[in-house]
Design a protein around this nucleic acid. Structure first.
Lengths: 224, 224
DNA sequence: TAGCATTTGTGAATGAATTCACAATCGTTA
DNA sequence: TAACGATTGTGAATTCATTCACAAATGCTA
């Protein structure tokens, strides 16, 4: 009866905030801070100290009362939780606007995401090298995903074909997909799909500017 | 006392979902649907009918009982709420990886966001034309923002200089900023700032793959 | 025009996330 | 080693978001 196995859900927001903490801790580490309090950590990402402590407490007790959290140690811990203390083999599908940008995006590299192979259907691009990464024919998708031990696939193709591509990707056994196409894709429930909707935040700004607003970005609405 | 003016907050999530509805409605319009039910609308974006109705109800009664919502009419209404039935003058700062991708991103165009001017500090780029848009010297920021009637500024510069740039942008009187640099920027409370953190979702996938998971992406955690 | 099948709009109920508030604990100093 | 200031870790309280559930409408059919 002692070590019972209850379980606790970790919310998506908590995970996203872990990313923020990780980012701040990287900076703090470079600035040679030994420890950091939940107060300081919160301040740097516009959150509350209580939230920082609660988030971290889901995963363990990393701090020291009276002192705060050890910067490097906590960074390592969060890195372990997020799976950032290792390399990930990533494939990119589609080298258009967005695709090309992602290939050169240093932030991905720094976090261990390595684009090992790029797929496209444009014969002019296939076979060429895009910033040192070979461009494969989309027709060899399954084979080249396997050959490169790809674990995560990034979709950067037009919305109209994204579903077909994803179907193939799923069929090839990939379990994690990041989608940049502005469309809602269907995948089996054992596949992780995340969407990056680049115009959503721009639309939020458009909304904010269009409506009477208070300072902090909280939008209010008249009601009779 | 009759027409009192209470106010209701609209949550950020609701606004983001409006973007999704807008997207689906655009598709439905093209597919020549006359009406759509909350059920169908929900299905297309993996939400619940109740949520769709509740979201819309914050802004008015757009539907007809027994029938559903008129597609074109609802699209127009949401467009009005989000401020998408007009053009926005946008400036882009930084034409590196991300910046270049954004210039060619058709989704922005379709939604009425027009990049009127691009700023950079690279003398080789300044004066040239980037996909038809002139590249200005960052030193003329204030002047050229004003001359182009810019309302929204997109930041795509390295994290290390982003805060300086934003300070100048704020000083020039801009009230809406979309930031792609992976850093938390400080702005006065009357300026809307939104962040686009491109590695956050990738990190979520990394987390999901790293942890034992159930099918639907809900991550659980052992507790003793 | 009456009856039926639908579907909205919305208070009430529920569930989830955030914040509060404080006991527990640590490092430091005298 | 005792007293103090600081800060964590965490149940409880609160706030916020989602879902439920049903009356009110509507179109359609006969």
């Amino acid at each position: 009866m002692a070590a019972s196995n209850s379980r606790k859900k970790i919310s998506e927001s908590t995970i996203h905030r872990l990313s923020l903490y990780y980012r701040v801790l990287s900076v703090l580490e470079k600035e040679n801070h030994q420890t950091v309090s939940s107060r300081e950590l919160a301040k740097r990402e516009k959150l509350t100290p209580a939230q920082v402590r609660k988030d971290l407490s889901f995963f363990g007790s990393f701090g020291t009362r009276g002192l705060g959290y050890p910067v490097s140690e906590l960074k390592k811990q969060i890195g372990d939780i997020l799976g950032l203390n290792r390399l990930w083999n990533v494939a990119l599908i589609g080298v258009g606007n967005i695709g090309s940008a992602l290939v050169g995006y240093k932030e991905f590299l720094r976090q261990g995401f390595r684009i090992r192979v790029i797929f496209d259907n444009d014969q002019r691009k296939i076979g060429s090298n895009h910033k040192g990464i070979k461009v494969s024919d989309i027709r060899n998708l399954e084979r080249d995903l396997r050959e490169n031990n790809i674990e995560i696939v990034v979709i950067a193709v037009p919305a109209t074909v994204a579903q077909y591509i994803v179907d193939d990707v799923v069929h090839a056994g990939i379990k994690a997909i990041l989608n940049f196409a502005p469309v809602n894709l269907k995948v089996p429930s054992d596949v992780f799909l995340r969407n990056e909707n680049m115009s959503m935040e721009l639309e939020y700004l458009s909304f904010a500017l269009s409506n009477l607003q208070n300072g902090r970005g909280t939008i209010k609405k008249e009601v009779s």
